[in-house]
Structures are given as C-alpha cells and as structure tokens.
Computed example of a mutant assay.
Amino acid sequence: MPHRTIPFALVGIDHVVFLIDDMPRALAFYRDVLGCAPGYSYPAMGMEQVWAGAALIVLWDTTHPGADVAVPSVAGGRNVDHVCVATSPFDPDALRAHLARHGVTILREAVHGGARGMGHSFYIRDPFGNTLEIKGPADYPDGRATRSPS
C-alpha cells in the first residue's frame, strides 16, 4: 500500500458535542462538578460551550427551536461512549467526597493507560447519561509503575 502524506498534525481533542435537554442543569453540572469555565455561547442555536482545560465541551439543547438538526441517534442509541477529561493530580478520597456531595455516582474506578500514561480514573455520568472519565496524570510521564516489582 503506498504511503500517503497527511496534510496536518494531530494536536488533541478540540471539542466534544453532547446532546442534552436541560441547559441550566447541564451548565450547573459542568461548572460545579467538573469546574469548567464558560466558553462561547450560541443562543440562537440553543448551544453553550464550556472550557475543559484547553478543549471545549459543547452542550446542545435538543429542546431548543434552533437545534432542529441536533437529533440523537436511533431511539435509545448514543452518539458518544465517553469523553476523557485530563486533570491535574488529585486525591482520590477528596474526589470521591466531592462527587458524593453533588450526588454523582461513581460507575468505576481504574488505574490504566491513556495519552499521558498510567493514571487513576473515575468514570461518572452527567445528568443526561453521558459518560465521563476523570483522569489524573500519569504516575510518571512515561507510564512506569510507581513501585518496583517485588
């Protein structure tokens, strides 16, 4: 197979679009639970964006008249499996307590690989059923284990 030149270099995730049906509730979750900052606003489309570090999470309200093309996939289907939000180091106990204070159920905890190496992850859902992975940085940038083998 001939080698082809790709005319761009990947940098990272720019944004993810979630279809939601209650904008105030969505904004409260992303602001109060994840600490996202307000981003761009498109009121004519029923769309708000929030900053998750250097990337955007786009919240598109399917109940808004300007969101006529924001249609979820087949009934009961989903458009996104999960989005991983890279974070600074965190204390797992403090994060568990924070999520509990907001009534957020932890679906799963894991230590596994990602773009930044092996790190601690919490899987949760936003109020609309979208799964988020909150992932701390790697123990070491190259993903090495923190303890030596016995």
Rank of each mutant, 00 (worst) to 15 (best):
E109V: 05
M45I: 00
R144K: 06
Y30N: 03
L34V: 11
D22Q: 07
P7H: 14
D126C: 04
L107C: 06
G12R: 12
R4H: 15
V17L: 12
P24L: 02
G143S: 11
F90G: 08
F122M: 00
V11T: 12
V104D: 11
W60S: 07
H112V: 03
A100C: 05
I124Y: 03
R147Y: 12
W60Y: 04
A26Y: 00
A52W: 04
H64W: 03
T146E: 14
H98L: 08
A138E: 06
M1W: 06
H3C: 03
D126I: 01
V71A: 05
G136F: 01
D61Q: 03
V111F: 07
S148F: 10
Y140M: 10
R31A: 15
P72H: 02
P137Y: 00
E48D: 08
P89R: 06
P2K: 11
D139S: 08
E133D: 13
V111H: 10
E48A: 11
V69D: 14
Q49A: 11
H112E: 12
V111D: 13
C36A: 15
D21W: 01
V33R: 07
V17T: 15
A110R: 12
A28P: 06
G35E: 03
I106R: 04
R144V: 07
L10Y: 11
Y40A: 14
C36W: 04
M118E: 14
G53Y: 02
Y123A: 01
H112I: 03
Q49N: 10
L59S: 02
T5S: 14
G119E: 05
H15P: 13
A52C: 14
V85E: 07
I57A: 02
P24N: 10
L95F: 09
Y123D: 03
A44V: 01
A44F: 01
I57P: 04
R4I: 14
I6C: 14
D142F: 02
C36D: 09
T131V: 15
D126Q: 01
I57C: 02
P137M: 00
R116S: 13
R101P: 07
R125I: 00
H64Y: 04
L95Y: 11
V50E: 01
W51I: 05
M1F: 08
S150V: 12
